[in-house]
Amino acid sequence: MTGFRWDQLARDGMARLGRLHTAHGPVDTPAFMPVGTAATVKAMAPWDVAETGAQMVLGNTYHLMLRPGAERVARLGGLHRFMAWDGPILTDSGGFQVMSLAQLRKLDETGVTFKSHIDGSSHALTPERSVEIQDLLDADVTMQLDECPPAGWPHDRVAASMRLSLRWAERCQRAFRQRPGYALFGIVQGGTYDDLRRESARELGAMDLPGYAVGGLAVGEGQAETFRVLEVTCPELPADKPRYLMGVGRPDDVVGAVMRGIDMFDCVLPTRSGRTGQAFTAGGTVNLKNARHREDARALDPACTCATCTTFSRAYLHHLIRAEEMLGPMLVSRHNVHYYQQLMAGLRAAIQRGELADHARALADGWAAGDIPPLQS
């Protein structure tokens, strides 16, 4: 088993082409990780996820802590065996739930106590316990426990939160069990305040962690502000370590973040949108619920090579979604995850060629052109 590392293979502006080496195999970056919150990428079998080109998936500490329980997963051979995913897994620490489930938790210096959204039972999640759970799950990448502040908090409140996350990062580092191919990532916080982002990035960088995430974005601040924060933050992070933007995002968000130095992404959007009949294509988003697809014999995206697009018509997908048939969300989710993987492959190739700016413009032009309606007979 090789040690955990990230190799930079090429660069175009701030964008980096690289390869992440983990205990369960390599990951080509920039990379998009499908979200498997509860040990499953929703509406997709693991072999279908792999067929899209995805190399790494994400699980969630909070949700797996509640059910089926980390100790149970460990007894059953770890998360890879449990969910039949042979590739690398990154686990979110539960920090996002500190924000999203604020009405169900209490937070202090020690950690967080959650009231389960399932049955009301109480669960303590300290930095040490979060790392222990992720170790029991056998995550290739463990994320530090942090507090993710929502958009709009004042400077003093965000500063206190960011420094709490720094102290938690130190506790996570002490608790993390070193093994070849496994890594702990720190999470840069600081809201939209430049001085706090720089402070967080520099303090975490001094800890010499194997990788770094940028958290606390895509929480309501808008794309332009997200990009501005990345322009402030990324230059402060170690150049030889991978950078992960948490919970982002739409295709144009991903492209813009890659151009600002981000290497790794995750987001629920491909499968969440798939479950509602919204597809991502070279011509922008397509709402398959719309009546104009009722007799459209074309592929969902003629430029796509996924099994959905090469097998089924828009009319059939429209029928499945409107009839609330289970297969509809499955087929659209599979297409969306494939689309994101092809998006990342295209970005990697463009960085290798030194043509990322031109490639990004071509993508944007395609999305701006929009979906072309069917010919009327």
Rank of each mutant, 00 (worst) to 15 (best):
A291T: 10
N290Y: 00
H338Y: 08
A299L: 07
G36V: 01
P88R: 12
D7H: 11
E231Y: 04
A39W: 04
G277H: 11
R334I: 00
Q352Y: 08
G13M: 06
S100D: 03
C234S: 10
M143P: 08
R202C: 01
A70P: 05
L9P: 01
A45E: 15
V229R: 07
A349N: 06
S333L: 05
M207V: 08
L300Q: 04
T91E: 08
L64N: 12
H21N: 04
L204N: 12
K241N: 08
T285H: 03
C234I: 13
D156G: 14
M264A: 04
L300S: 07
H80V: 03
T271K: 13
G186M: 04
D119W: 04
I118Q: 13
H21S: 05
A15H: 09
L166H: 15
H293S: 10
N290R: 11
L347V: 15
M143H: 10
P150G: 05
V41S: 03
L64Q: 14
M326C: 10
M330W: 06
L288W: 07
E225P: 08
W6R: 05
T29M: 00
D156L: 06
A224W: 01
V254A: 09
S122D: 11
L166P: 12
F4I: 02
L343T: 06
C267F: 04
N287S: 12
T110M: 01
S116A: 01
R294F: 02
T113A: 11
L230C: 08
L375W: 11
V141N: 09
H318Q: 14
H63K: 10
G3H: 11
H335G: 13
G277D: 11
